[in-house]
């Protein structure tokens, strides 16, 4: 920890060839080469250079109240790389970048003793199934972990049945169980609007209340994401005004365009080391386009994944009886392998 060289500092200006280290700092103060003021500034730099959340005593800064743990830049880059490999979702990425910048600046403000808002990072995800909500939530969890916002950053995915019980008192108990699992990470409630159906007497309301209470009690270490169809979620928020103020971040997940869906398909195949024959590409495109017209909720990546997984299985059935199949054949998906998933 100690032997780090740190550059000369301070408005009081040290001779540029003078380097301050935690070892020689006291001697320099004693010899009158460095003022206590500059010494303290140099030591702050030394700690900063060590990379914040690093070693020893500085490590547990999470425990001392207002201090927010320092970020670890490299791991954060890795998470961003992963987010950037997701196709489309430009507005989502942009918003996440804004959130990250906001956290970062709040942290710097806190360091400069400026008033900084408490971080309220509960979110609402609106979008059709298969538009990347869960995938993005999982990545956000990792991003927040690397930024030191969340301790663990894992994702606990739940839906109404995981939260709502069958008799009085059962719901709070079930909800608390899930919340406990999610501590240090993200509780992702899929089709959250279903908690509000059935009106006042429904136990769904109790689940919401229990969740909101846990959010207040664990401000530092729990993030809740409510997800679902756009229209239903907007209705849900309108019906429950308390929700809107407690979930300040709203992210819209637009449907993928046809072109994006095809790029997703290509990426999936590439990862699995398969290729589409030329006619297969055209056929895939036709199937996806037809489905999109048929059903407004189908502009999604799950459709593509199902199509491809089905194709891979059919390809396997086709080749299983032919031990002489070549390496190329083992990779190539023919149009006949592609069949619409019902």
């Amino acid at each position: 920890m100690a032997s780090q060289l740190i550059p000369p500092v301070g408005p009081y200006g040290l001779p540029p060839d003078l380097l301050v280290t935690p070892e020689n700092v006291t001697q320099m103060v004693e010899m009158g080469q460095l003022s206590p003021y500059d010494a303290l500034r140099a030591l702050q730099r030394a700690e900063a250079l060590e990379g914040g959340g690093g070693t020893g005593r500085a490590g547990s800064s999470a425990s001392n109240g207002t201090a927010i743990p320092e970020p670890r830049p490299r791991a954060i880059d890795e998470v961003w790389n992963e987010l950037n490999t997701l196709i489309g979702l430009d507005s989502v990425k942009e918003l996440i970048r804004e959130i990250q910048a906001y956290i970062e600046v709040q942290r710097r403000r806190a360091r400069e003793q400026l008033a900084s808002d408490p971080l309220v990072l509960h979110m609402i995800f609106k979008g059709n199934p298969g538009t990347g909500k869960t995938t993005v939530a999982r990545i956000i969890g990792r991003l927040f972990k690397e930024m030191g916002v969340l301790q663990k950053g894992h994702l606990v995915e739940v839906e109404r049945a995981d939260l709502v019980g069958e008799y009085i008192g059962h719901t709070a108990q079930k909800t608390r169980e899930q919340l406990k699992k999610a501590m240090g990470g993200i509780l992702f409630v899929d089709e959250a609007y279903s908690l509000a159906r059935g009106g006042e007497k429904d136990f769904g309301k109790e689940a919401i209340d229990t969740m909101v209470k846990a959010m207040e009690d664990n401000k530092e270490n729990l993030i809740v994401i409510l997800a679902g169809y756009r229209r239903e979620m907007e209705h849900f928020i309108r019906q429950n005004p308390g929700i809107k103020s407690r979930f300040p971040i709203h992210i819209d997940f637009p449907d993928f365009s046809l072109e994006e869906l095809l790029r997703i398909a290509r990426l999936m195949l590439e990862k699995r080391q398969y290729v589409l024959a030329e006619e297969s590409q055209a056929k895939l495109s036709n199937i996806v386009a037809a489905r999109s017209r048929l059903d407004e909720n189908s502009g999604n990546a799950r459709l593509v994944r199902n199509l491809i997984e089905r194709a891979i299985r059919r390809h396997a059935t086709r080749l299983v009886g032919r031990p002489e199949a070549t390496r190329d054949e083992l990779m190539l998906l023919l149009p006949s392998d592609l069949e619409e998933v019902v």
Binding site: P22, V25, T26, Q27, V29, E30, M31, G32, Q33, L34, S35, P36, Y37, A39, L40, L43
Partner: peptide, 21 residues
């Protein structure tokens, strides 16, 4: 804040910074 003229005082402050470490 400043470098003090008295070597004895400086030595004391140096010890303080050492202890702070």
């Amino acid at each position: 804040e400043h470098i003090h003229g008295d070597a004895d005082v400086r030595k004391g402050m140096a010890q303080t910074i050492g202890a702070l470490l």
